[in-house]
Design a protein around this nucleic acid. Structure first.
Length: 358
DNA sequence: GCATCCCGCCATCCA
DNA sequence: TGGATGGCGGGATGC
């Protein structure tokens, strides 16, 4: 049988580490797809940054990026230090509705948006990390706090979404979004930085299929088109579909830290299968229940067995992975996918075993 | 050559 | 004071 490129054996790990670097395989979009694949299950409530980083094979820093953007549309919520809850897609429509209302109130729907870029959200709920004093708000010039707040991925992402929701334009370019969302300063350096962040956000939202990259008609200028949460329901299954159906990349190659440089995260610690059990059962969110799955619809996998295996020992981790794979495997009716997942799990097991040895 | 965006440094926050 | 968080921009990769 021809070797499938997405299967990563333990022998391959070192080889892959030495292989030529491919930026595409490390993109935030791919990371988000994997993130969703792993966590979008009924039996996942809470997760930790370390755990996510270990599972996804990336540095903590990247998880912060993803989580901040996902938090802006309430796919996840911060519950505490190093602790997030997975809400799934259930809250997206409500979140978008709220963002639209806020956006309209804040003038995102008017043509003056470009000059109203200081009208960033001051949603009470969201003030946690950036609470402004009245004095701060009175300052006409942008205070340090204002600037930090305006620059946060969370807020930038919300404002970006508001632009789509409130604007009459079908297409939005990152340049125009950066200009609109940038405060007074038209400093090219700030613009560049803002555009960089918008690329990050756009990648995540594209990966969530909320927006789609396209071009301004008649030009080569890239722009983004809003698909909305409707698209999530209509074709959202692709987020969970067979990796070889997914846009460009394949499952096995998406383990994103195969570089020779080790990340700082110590995989041997903090690894807890499926995170932490939520205290308040009332808050349990049937994240995937309202979601319309495609042909590979996962059924509600029981986590009972896994929870008790939440030990941090290495063998525990391997068992956890096996439990995870067995929880998934029988529930996919597509044989190709089933095979793929099996190989994928095996690759993970070998990879962690290799890591343990080292 | 420009667009894209990963990567990790380091400032800030917080317990 | 050390760990958690995340802004930021250099510079590598892709087209």
């Amino acid at each position: 049988m021809e070797k499938m490129p997405w299967i990563v054996s333990s022998q391959d790990v070192d080889a892959l580490a030495l292989q030529s670097y491919s930026r595409k395989e490390k993109s935030l979009g791919v990371l988000v797809s994997n993130f969703v694949r792993i966590y979008n299950r009924d039996d996942v409530d809470l997760f930790g940054i370390d755990e996510a980083a270990a599972k996804l094979g990336v540095e903590r820093r990247r998880i912060y990026d993803v989580v901040n953007i996902l938090e802006s549309i309430e796919v996840v919520s911060r519950k505490g230090k190093n602790l997030y809850s997975w809400n799934g897609f259930l809250h997206i429509p409500r979140s978008l509705h709220q963002l639209k209302e806020e956006g309209l109130r804040e003038g995102f729907g008017t043509s003056s948006i470009c000059s109203n870029s200081d009208k960033v959200s001051h949603d009470d709920e969201s003030e946690e990390s950036f609470s402004l004093t009245p004095d701060d708000q009175d300052n006409s010039s942008l205070s340090k706090l204002d600037h930090k707040k305006e620059s946060s991925l969370w807020l930038l992402s919300q404002n970006f979404v508001k632009m789509f929701l409130c604007s009459h334009d079908d297409l939005i370019t990152l340049d125009s979004a950066a200009k609109a969302l940038l405060s007074d300063s038209q400093d090219p350096m700030h613009m560049r930085t803002k555009v960089r962040r918008l690329y990050d956000i756009a990648n995540v939202l594209s990966s969530m299929e909320l927006i789609e990259k396209t071009h301004i008609p008649g030009t080569r200028k890239p722009a983004y088109k809003w698909l909305g949460s409707k698209s999530l329901t209509e074709k959202g299954s692709s987020l969970f579909n067979s990796p070889n159906e997914s846009k460009k990349r394949v499952f096995g190659t998406e383990i994103t830290n195969l570089s020779t440089k080790r990340n700082k995260t110590d995989c041997s610690s903090n690894y807890v299968q499926n995170g932490y059990k939520k205290h308040d059962e009332e808050e349990k969110k049937p994240a995937a229940k309202s979601y319309v799955f495609g042909p590979f619809s996962p059924t509600a996998a029981s986590k009972k067995n896994n929870i008790n295996n939440a030990g941090t020992s290495n063998s525990g981790r391997l068992q956890d992975l096996e439990a995870l794979s067995s929880a998934y495997k029988p529930q996919y009716c597509n044989q190709d996918v089933t095979g793929l997942l099996g190989h994928y799990t095996e690759a993970w097991n070998k990879w962690f075993a290799e890591l343990d040895r080292k």
